[in-house]
Amino acid sequence: MPDAGAATDRSAAVAALLTGRRGTPVAVEEWRRLEPWAVARARLDGPGGPETVVVKWVRRFHSQTAPDEWRLRSELAALGFLAEDRGVALAPRVLAADLDAGLLILEDLAPRTALDLLLRRDGAAAHADRLAAFARACGELGAATAGQAGAYYARRAALGPVDPAADRMGPFARLREEARRRAAALGAPLADRAAAELAAAHAELAEPGPFLALSNNDAQPNNVLLHAAGPPEARLIDFEFAGFTHALRDAVWLHVPGPAWMSVGDPQGTGLADDYRRALAEGVPEAADDLRYGPGLAAACLDWAIIRLQRLATLDDRPAGHPSRPQLVATLEAAAHTAEAFRALPRLAGWARRVAALLRRRWPDADLDLADPAAFPAFAPRR
């Protein structure tokens, strides 16, 4: 096993770190890697009996000359900020950290399991209450942290350099221009009015005003843990990309398919959109105002669709029938639909629909009735 040596070293480092933190000997009895992530569950032996913890570490990817150490720093700052500064139990607690060694030791939230696994196994209808809990948790995160950027960045800056302006625009900002070039090559350049609306959308996202809140910047069903039975108490995970950004980015998953899904259903009809919005409005009263909420949500959804559009060349190279093709069509059309529902960014929404129509012609295999709930029910997975 190629990682056996590294696992042994990490196991020893975790034991030493917890021994030092607790002042009593702690041993790691079992180490189980949670593939494909740089995460493991460690079973400990120490005072008080066996327990398990979750360990995260810095991973270097093949294209990198150095690991992304800022990811663990962001996660440590975000989780500490939530638990210690805001007193919010929406995420795991940090038990110990050694940033020089690139290790975080977190509270193990088992037997909770990832929502996406439940959705794939049973379908969305069987877990409506858990989807609602996820929606509320995302809204609660925004409500609890809005207006607190100064406190978070003081904590984050103590761990290393950080760029709050870059955080506001999200971790994928560099992909937007490439997406525009892909659309232009496809035959759908952004006309003047649509380009002006895109600029307005980016201005909204760059300066969220009262909607500026902490996000893990990856609000998707794989990053929320819930009990498979019993009360649906949600816990959000994976804060490596955390930062203060427009709170409505955390609502995009309700309206537009993420990477794992072909569809997300009707969040208005199911009440999920209202679950999120009411929770957010507890701390951000402007969320109750359609004139403030609609443009922000439209901007966040269309921005996500544009970011996904930069994958066009990759999808061109895939074989006919690959589900990522209709998924991109669904993403563009769902984002446009959301903007239209709030009568926001109409020309940009029209442009997204034109791009989707061009993709349907380019890929006949993607020219499907994505609105058919029998073929594409809520949270139909992209297999």
Rank of each mutant, 00 (worst) to 15 (best):
G243C: 03
A83G: 12
A313T: 13
K56L: 10
P346D: 05
L44D: 03
V54M: 11
H255I: 07
L106K: 02
N223E: 07
A78I: 02
A380G: 02
P210S: 08
L82V: 01
L115W: 04
S74G: 11
D238R: 09
Q268G: 15
T314M: 02
D317V: 02
P210K: 06
R292A: 15
W351H: 15
I237F: 04
D116E: 12
L332Q: 08
A300N: 03
E30S: 15
R193G: 00
P323Q: 03
A219D: 12
P111F: 06
A83S: 14
L309T: 05
H246D: 03
D303I: 00
P36T: 04
L119A: 05
P161T: 01
A83N: 05
V26E: 09
A339L: 10
A96W: 03
T19W: 13
R343F: 11
L272T: 01
R249T: 00
T65G: 15
A228T: 10
A288N: 12
Y152C: 03
F134I: 02
A114W: 09
G170T: 07
L109F: 06
R278N: 01
R360Q: 15
L302E: 04
H337N: 12
P231R: 09
R325Q: 14
P373K: 13
V329N: 07
Y293Q: 11
P36I: 02
G269H: 12
A126S: 12
G296Y: 05
T338M: 04
L99W: 06
R22M: 12
L119E: 05
D129N: 11
C138Y: 07
A288Q: 13
D266A: 14
L34H: 08
E30I: 03
F376I: 08
G123P: 08
A66T: 15
D289S: 13
P232T: 06
G49K: 13
R354D: 14
N217K: 13
R318W: 14
G20T: 11
H246N: 02
G271W: 00
